[in-house]
């Protein structure tokens, strides 16, 4: 594997991993596969776009990129605001839809189906608001810098890989070192016992949506920065996200990140050897292999 493929894989993998961390958290604590998670990525990306344009329009000067990156101060501020708004969106969908189904005692698979409907509605709403034409945060062209080993990378790409790892380490520390994180792991393992020891599960559910939404927004904005912003961007990432979650083991944050990197590297390798047109099938191939060989994933516990 050449260095360049490695870099491409790392980039794709970092984005997938970041989205998968949020998905694995909601999956393990809310106990259903959320097909609308991809739309949280797309909404996050579009919210960042609209907010950065709004901030730029108000303040004017801050649209200038921060050298050597193509990212402007306005976009960074917009990204932070968009994280909060995406979290609000996730909470709203839960409140309107998933929480009601849970409260009624609906089976997990009914909730999965509802998430499928929500995914369709949220995606089409983006298409209605922004049309299906691709959008960009910046028209700035970046020159790839030569790195050791004959690899070329743009400053943006390196920034994003770094940012993804910082975010994942932060979530890992949150889960292992804080009361909130321990409570989240406790609810994920046994909600009834968590209640018995005094954990308010409703509060934990809210925390999970906030973290999941904020991470999805980060992943979506990164993807938008590296490639482009489209209403279907999150939906197209959904299968790689699920592959990363299942490969890593449902509920495992390091597993989701590692799973994301493996899926990203496999995709880069497949693009190189088989052809770019088969990229979207790689995630399914990974899922198939995991489900046949080790359904609990790398770091998962037996059901």
């Amino acid at each position: 594997m050449s260095g360049q493929i490695l870099l491409e894989g790392l980039l794709a993998g970092a984005m997938i991993g970041l989205g998968a961390v949020g998905l694995t958290l909601t999956y393990s604590i809310l106990r259903f596969a959320n097909f609308a998670h991809g739309e949280l990525l797309s909404w996050g990306a579009y919210l960042s776009l609209s907010l950065s344009l709004a901030i730029g329009a108000v303040s004017g000067a801050s649209l200038a990129p921060l050298d050597p990156f193509s990212v402007s101060a306005a976009l960074i501020l917009a990204g932070l605001l968009a994280m909060a708004l995406t979290a609000v969106l996730a909470l709203a969908v839960d409140h309107l839809l998933f929480a009601r189904l849970r409260g009624r005692g609906a089976t997990a698979i009914i909730v999965v189906m509802a998430s499928f409907g929500a995914s369709m509605a949220l995606r089409s709403l983006l298409e209605f608001l922004y049309t299906s034409k691709p959008a960009y945060y910046s028209r700035e062209l970046q020159i790839a810098m030569p790195l050791p080993g004959g690899i070329r990378a743009t400053p943006d790409q390196l920034l994003l890989i770094g940012l993804a790892f910082v975010a994942v380490i932060a979530v890992h520390l949150l889960l292992t070192r804080t009361d909130l994180g321990r409570a989240m792991r406790a609810v994920s393992e046994n909600p009834a016992l968590a209640g018995v020891v005094g954990i308010d599960t409703a509060k934990i559910v809210r925390a999970v949506w906030i973290i999941g939404g904020a991470l999805a927004c980060t992943a979506g904005t990164m993807s938008g920065l590296l490639v482009q912003i489209r209403p279907y961007m999150g939906f197209d990432l959904l299968l790689p996200l699920f592959a990363a979650v299942i490969l890593g083991g449902i509920g495992s944050v390091p597993g989701a990140m590692l799973g994301g990197l493996i899926v990203g590297l496999c995709e880069a390798l497949a693009v190189q050897t088989i052809g770019a047109e088969w990229r979207a099938a790689v995630a399914f191939a990974v899922i198939t292999v995991v489900l046949v060989l080790r359904p609990t994933g790398l770091f998962g516990r037996a059901a």
Binding site: R185, A186, V197, G198
Partner: peptide, 28 residues
């Protein structure tokens, strides 16, 4: 009262099965 409020009021319960968090450490 919701379940999680009971222990704060002084009622401690030890279930028969699944009464610890198996994926957490003893200290956790």
């Amino acid at each position: 009262e919701p379940r999680h409020a009971l222990v704060r009021k002084g009622l401690a319960f030890v279930p028969q099965t699944e009464n610890i968090f198996a994926t957490l450490t003893i200290r956790e």
